[in-house]
């Protein structure tokens, strides 16, 4: 359960330092099951365009399974049109169209159905770019929908602290770095 407050650490700290406030009454502490499981971190996010996406998180797919996912877009700005562009990562095959366009109506949902098939095991993504035209300026917002195909496992090889797990990067746990190659000159 996620919540907005970074609370309990502050409570504990204030309790220890001030010695005069107890954060939660004894009866409640004795029966923690009636308390919410509070997300302690507050996330301060970046501003975004007034485009919202609502969808039902897809279940895991098996290879050759077909996914039909309805994406519901809502726009809160006085936009002239809404453009949708859909792509999928390589574990999926996109079988529906990839580009859609709507005349926008504020706070009314515009729906798109994406159809994709599981191609191979892996953690896949349905990537969605939504763009509105507001007062002559294009404003975009990106979304990424996770899809699991099969039961993927992460593989990596390790020899004495050197891990090769991804092209272009070398993980050197002994030296505490992820090493990346430089373009090097000597003049």
């Amino acid at each position: 359960m996620k919540k907005f407050y970074l609370l309990p650490s502050l409570l504990a700290l204030s309790f220890l330092l001030m010695g005069m406030s107890k954060p939660i009454e004894k009866e409640t502490l004795a029966t923690p099951q009636v308390q919410k499981s509070v997300e302690r971190k507050t996330h301060y996010t970046k501003p975004h365009a007034g485009i919202y996406l609502d969808y039902q998180r897809p279940d895991n797919l098996q290879i050759d399974d077909r996914l039909e996912l309805q994406l519901n877009f809502k726009v809160r700005d006085q936009a002239e049109q809404l453009q949708i562009e859909v792509s999928v990562s390589e574990a999926l095959l996109l079988e529906s169209g990839s580009k859609f366009e709507f005349e926008t109506v504020i706070n009314k949902f515009n729906s798109v159905t994406v159809v994709a098939t599981g191609l191979k095991e892996g953690s896949a993504r349905i990537n969605v770019g939504a763009t509105i035209l507001v007062a002559g300026r294009y404003q975009s917002r990106s979304f990424s929908i996770p899809v699991i195909v099969g039961e993927p496992t992460q593989s990596k090889s390790t020899v004495t602290g050197v891990v090769i797990s991804k092209p272009g990067y070398r993980v050197d746990e002994a030296q505490g770095v992820v090493s990346m190659p430089a373009v090097e000159t000597s003049e």
């Binding site: 407050y5 609370l7 502050l10 409570l11 009454e25 009636v34 308390q35 919410k36």
Partner: peptide
């Protein structure tokens, strides 16, 4: 600074004690 809180899931009611 938050010095105390009541976050129970009791329906329609919340209560806590603070000094």
């Amino acid at each position: 600074t938050i010095v105390a809180a009541g976050q129970s899931v009791v329906n329609r009611s919340e209560s806590f004690v603070s000094n």
